[in-house]
Structures are given as C-alpha cells and as structure tokens.
Design a protein around this nucleic acid. Structure first.
Length: 414
RNA sequence: GUGGCUGUAGCUCAGUUGGUUAGAGCACCGGUUUGUGGUACCGGGGGUCGGGGGUUCAAGUCCCCUCAGCCACCCCA
C-alpha cells in the first residue's frame, strides 16, 4: 500500500475536483483573452540558472524549495517553481522585444519542495498573466482589473480582499532596506531567530513577522512612505486612482512585501480567510528589473499568478457536464446497430454513453447515475421496425421512433 | 525545515480495562421483477486495522521507528 501512495505532496485529479480545476483554467484563459492576452506554455523545466538569477539567491524558493537535478547531458535543470521566469526567458529566446507590448496567459503545474498542507502541495498549479513592455501605471491597473474579472467570473471575488502596497523603485527600496537594517541591527538581541535571518536576507519580511517581540519592534520601525521618492509616490498614486476609477476597492497594507527579488512598485494580493493559513489566492506585482537581470533589453513588466487548487476549493459552485444520451442495445444484433448509431450521434456532437451488459432494469438504473436525459432502447422488436424506443428519463414517457428520424427527435436533448 | 494532531472496507466512521471469526451506513455486485429506471426488501463481494519492529499467553487497542494527511510556524499561489 505504502509504495502505491502518490509521492508526498502530489495527488491525482479526477471527477469533481478535475472539473473544477479545468473550469478555473478555462475561465482564466477566456477572461485573459478578453484583455487580449494569448496563451503560452513554457517548458516544465528550465536550466537552473533561469530561476536562480531571477528569483534571487536569498529567496526560500531558490535556497531550499527547488527540485534541481543533473541531466544525462550534464546540464543542471530545475522543475519550475513558478512561471514568470520561464515567460521572461521565452520572451528573450524568441526575440519578442520587437513586438511590445507582449501579453501572455499561462496555466500549468509548478513544483516546490515544501511541507504539504491544505492548499499547499509539492506539485501544484498556477494560472497567471504577464504584461511586458508597459511602464505606465495603467499597466498595473489593467493587470489588477484582469484579476478582478477572473475572480468575479469564478464567483469567488466576494470572498476575497485586495491588499495593495508599493515597494517603490530601486532607489527607494534600497534606501528603505538600509534604514531597516540599521534600525533592527540595534535590536539584534531582541529579534526572533527567524527575523534575525531575515535581517540578512530580506529585512522587509521582518515587518510581517508574527512573533510578538518582533511586532513591538516593528511598531517603531521606519515607515516606507518616508523613503519613497517622488517618482515612486506618483506612480503609486496613479495606480490607486486608476483602481478607483474602475470601482475596484482595496486595502493598503504597508506590510505586504514580496519574497521574490524581481518585484518593484506595485505589489498586490487577493486573500481570503476561508482557506486557513494559505489565504493568498492570486498575487503579483511589477517587475521592471527582471528582463534586464536576465541579460535582455530593459523591459518593464507586471503580472500575477493564482493558485488553481486554492481557487477551485473556494469555488463552491458545481461544474456541470452536458447530459449524455444513453443507448441501450438488447441482444447481439442490436449491439452491432447501436455501435453505429452511437458513432453517428457522436459525430453530431452528442455525448453518448453506450453500455453492453446487464438487464434493462440495471441499465436504466445506470443511465440515471450517469445523469442521462434520454435513453434509446434498441431490441429485436425495434430492429424489426427499423426503429428505436426513445425514453425521456425525467418524464418517463417513451415512443417508438424510426432510426432516420432519431436525429430530429433528439435535438431537444442537446 | 520546526512543533502538534490523526491514520480501521472505495467513502464517512464505530470497535469497552489488550481477549478468540474486526463491525455499521453509504457505494458496489446480485436477487425479488428473463425488455422498462430513481423507492422498498433480501443476499453477496471487499480489510495483512498506513508500514516495520517490540512488549504479552494474546495487540486494531500498549511502546519505539517510519510513511502519509491535517493544523500552526515558516514560506508562498
């Protein structure tokens, strides 16, 4: 049994869960398309460098969560922990800087070696969008608006809160970072162990600490707004007024920071309280430095990624499949005929279930379980009359119909 | 990675202070009804009690290890 369990942190998707999962991706793709975003699929693995350079050497994702291994050819590759780096790499590989702006939607599996929990698996799926080549805050507004449309179409928007913050530009961020390091360094003996390591790696994270002692120190820590330069302040103001104009409400969260190095200016998260500790459902921001970091032409970018499993859990509504037409042949002659009929109906885009065993009672019973709307019963009697019995499963009414008139008869069950 | 809780049939769960053949509901299969469904009644299959080791005359039950899930931290989508 234990050897037959799936690998830790992975699981099989089928049935209801699969339908909801697919629905999330379908809606994401469709909504993104309305905004003019085309789908892209990048490889599931990349050279390790792609992630190391873009995510930053200090992020947890890079330092302890990547699935990295050597190939037979001697390359070191990594299962993608996220998709922005892959899209950025594709952007350069394909010379897309010649056709800005570039707008992509993606969806697929990502891999992180984390301790599994609900809403946190080692193989999980993200749907996301990237907008490359727009430096104006209107780009940020469009991206956030796209997220709002997506969540609304899924029916989960009401259960989320949009948290918003700015990380400022390079200059502001650097200045604030230094101020924080200076401030917290004076309290090294009082900081929690976690925050002590954050002081080295990502001091902004200390602001978000849940440790009580840390929080007291944070209360008197320097505030970011004092370190934002005019350009950054103005940028943020325009993002906010853009959101206001679209009627998108948000809460400013000064402690909202990013673990990944490439972010600047706008950072946002749609969170929910319905999923426990894994409450972030869609998050993103601006990453103007990314492409250049990778050795490409300086190209601004904004985007977000969403957790497909988390959204699927939040989406309580049922995803319904079209009801099938069930064909029930009785006897060998009828079975041969039924297979041909099923084939014709399938070419006509009906969903057809064809069974081969059991008595009529069992098979009607099974038709109910398959949620069928109509059953076509074919036995010797019907065959003799070149007909089939068409039984409406909700009303229980049935009639004998000539085979060549079947298509018309069935059209109401589409 | 740290700490805690849980693990018995496909699913949800009983199982007494350790005691002989481990149960129920749902689901599944079959019958009552050899070609007419959702109900009802009757019957059946299915478990090395997550895995391994130990204590004991005896372990689903106690102890140790291990695996997995969940919760919090951490991190993040």
């Amino acid at each position: 049994m234990s050897s037959l369990q799936p690998v830790r942190g992975t699981h099989d998707l089928f049935g209801d869960d699969m339908r909801r999962h697919r629905e999330v991706l379908n809606i994401g793709r469709e909504v993104a398309n309305r905004f003019g975003y085309d789908e892209i699929i990048t490889p599931i693995f990349e050279k390790t460098e792609v992630f190391k350079r873009t995510l930053g050497d200090t992020s947890d994702v890079v330092t302890k969560e990547m699935y990295t291994f050597p190939t037979k050819g001697g390359d070191e590759i990594t299962l993608r922990p996220e998709n922005t780096a892959g899209v950025a790499r594709a952007f350069m590989s394909n010379g897309l800087s010649q056709q800005l702006p570039v707008k992509f939607f993606y969806g697929g599996p990502m891999f992180r070696h984390e301790r599994p929990q609900k809403g946190r698996q080692r193989q999980f799926h993200q749907a996301g969008v990237e907008l490359l080549g727009v430096e104006k805050p209107q780009g940020d507004v469009e991206i956030i608006s796209l997220g709002v449309h997506f969540l609304k179409e899924l029916g989960v928007y009401e259960n989320t809160t949009l948290e918003l913050n700015t990380l400022g530009d390079q200059e502001s961020r650097q200045a604030y970072r230094e101020a924080l390091i200076e401030y917290f360094s004076a309290f090294k003996d009082q900081l929690s162990e976690d925050s002590l390591s954050r002081l080295e790696k990502n001091p902004l994270r200390i602001l978000d600490s849940k440790d009580e002692g840390d929080r007291k120190l944070v209360a008197d820590a320097p505030v970011f707004s004092d370190y934002l330069n005019d350009l950054s302040k103005d940028f943020f103001a325009q993002v906010k007024s853009g959101l206001d104009a679209l009627g998108i409400s948000y809460e400013i969260n000064p402690r909202l920071v990013r673990g990944l190095d490439y972010y600047c200016h706008t950072a946002f998260e749609f969170t929910t309280t319905a999923l426990g500790a894994q409450g972030t459902v869609l998050a993103g921001g601006r990453y103007d430095g990314l492409i250049k970091t990778m050795g490409g032409p300086a190209t601004p970018g904004v985007g977000w990624a969403s957790g497909v499993e988390r959204l699927a859990m939040l989406m309580t509504r049922q995803v319904v499949e079209p009801k099938p037409v069930v064909i029930i042949p009785m006897g060998e002659a009828a079975e041969a005929k039924a297979q041909i009929l099923a084939d014709e109906l399938r070419y006509a885009a009906y969903r057809v279930e064809l069974g081969f065993s059991g008595n009529l009672k069992k098979r009607l019973n099974r038709a109910n379980k398959q949620n069928a709307s109509v059953a076509i019963i074919m036995g010797d009697d019907e065959l003799a009359a070149n007909s089939a019995t068409v039984r409406d499963l909700s009303s229980g009414e049935q009639e004998l119909v000539k085979l060549d008139a079947l298509a018309d008869k069935l059209s109401v069950y589409r």
